[in-house]
Simulated assay, not measured.
Amino acid sequence: MHFEHSARLRAAYPDLVAGVVLATGITATADVAQRTAAYTAVARERLAGGAESGFPQIQAWRRAYAAMGLRPTRYRCAAEALLRRLRLDDELPRLHPLVDLCNAVSAAYAIPVAVLDLDRVDGDLVVRPAHGDEEYLSFAGETEHPDPGEVTFVDTAGRAHARRWTNRQSGWSAVREGTSSVLIVAEALHPGAEADVTRLVAALVAELAEGWSAPTRAAVLTDTAPRFDVTTAGEASGQAVSPGTRWR
C-alpha cells in the first residue's frame, strides 16, 4: 500500500507539502489530556493576536478553495473550522484521545490534519480529483458521491475518505474505539510549509511515543518525494522526522 497525491493535483498546487505518520498500537485509553491542552493553549494564544482568517496557513487554503470554485467561507478547511470553533466556544470537541490530540495539534499549527483507520482503507490511497462515482460515507451513515473534479482521498476500492479535500473526513475510516493502526496526514500550501509540516510531524511522532509507545514511520512529502510506502505493523520503525529529512 502507498499514499500519494496525484500528479495532476501536484501540478495544480506546486506548493503542496504533506506530512504523513503511520502509527500502530493505538488505543482509546491513553491519557494525553495534558498534552492536548498544551497544544490548545498555543492555538488560543495565536487567536488572541487575531482571527484565524488572517493566518497565512488559512489564507493559502482559502485561495485553494476559491481556485476549486468553492466559497471559502462556506467550505472551510478542517484547521480553520477547528480554530473558528475554538475562538467562538473556547473549546475543541472531545472524541477519542488520538483525534483530540491531532485536532489540538492542527489548531496550534493552523494546518489540516486527518487521521484514518488503516484497517478501513483498501489498497493504495491517492489524493486526486474525483471521477464522481466514488462512495463517501457520512458520519450520519449516508452514502454520498463527490462531485466530478472534487479533490478527495480515494482508495483502491473506490471509497472516498474525504469531501472537498481537507473539509470533511469520511465516517467509514474515522478513528473509533477499536482502532489500532492509523495513517495521519497533514497538508499545507503556505510559504514556509515544508518547515512547518516537518515540525508538526516530529511533534506527532514524539506525542505518539509518549502517549501510546506507538511504533511509527513518518515522512514529509513534496513534489520531489511524493510517495509514502505504508509498512505493516511489524515493519514500523519509530524514527522521527528532523528538519529537511524525507523518507520514501
Rank of each mutant, 00 (worst) to 15 (best):
Y75D: 12
T36V: 09
F228T: 00
G123L: 02
H131N: 12
A218D: 05
G132S: 10
D122V: 14
A81P: 01
L125S: 01
H131P: 03
Y13L: 10
G141C: 04
D100H: 04
V32R: 06
L101R: 05
F139M: 10
D89S: 13
N103R: 14
A114P: 01
L208P: 02
R84C: 08
R76L: 15
T27H: 00
R46M: 10
A214W: 03
V230H: 02
H145T: 11
A104D: 04
A78G: 12
V175P: 00
I58V: 09
T36K: 03
L101Q: 06
R246C: 12
R227P: 00
F228C: 00
A64T: 06
T245H: 10
P243T: 08
L16F: 07
D124S: 05
A236P: 02
S170K: 05
R227F: 01
T166M: 15
L47A: 13
I184M: 03
V201F: 10
G141K: 03
A11W: 08
R85N: 07
R76S: 13
L88I: 12
M1S: 05
E52F: 14
L9V: 10
E177D: 15
Y136W: 09
Y13C: 04
P97R: 03
A78L: 12
T152S: 14
P215A: 08
V21Q: 00
R246T: 15
E144K: 05
R164E: 09
L200K: 00
Y13T: 04
Q34P: 00
S180N: 06
H96N: 12
R84V: 10
L204M: 14
E194S: 02
L189A: 01
G50C: 08
A193E: 02
V185M: 03
T179V: 07
R35D: 05
R217V: 08
P93C: 08
L16T: 06
T40W: 01
L92N: 07
A41F: 06
G238I: 11
R120A: 15
H161T: 12
E144D: 07
M68G: 06
A12N: 05
A43Q: 06
D15M: 08
A30G: 02
A130C: 13
F153D: 03
N103H: 13
T36H: 07
A67E: 11
A79I: 09
H5N: 15
H161R: 12
R176P: 01
L204N: 01
P226M: 04
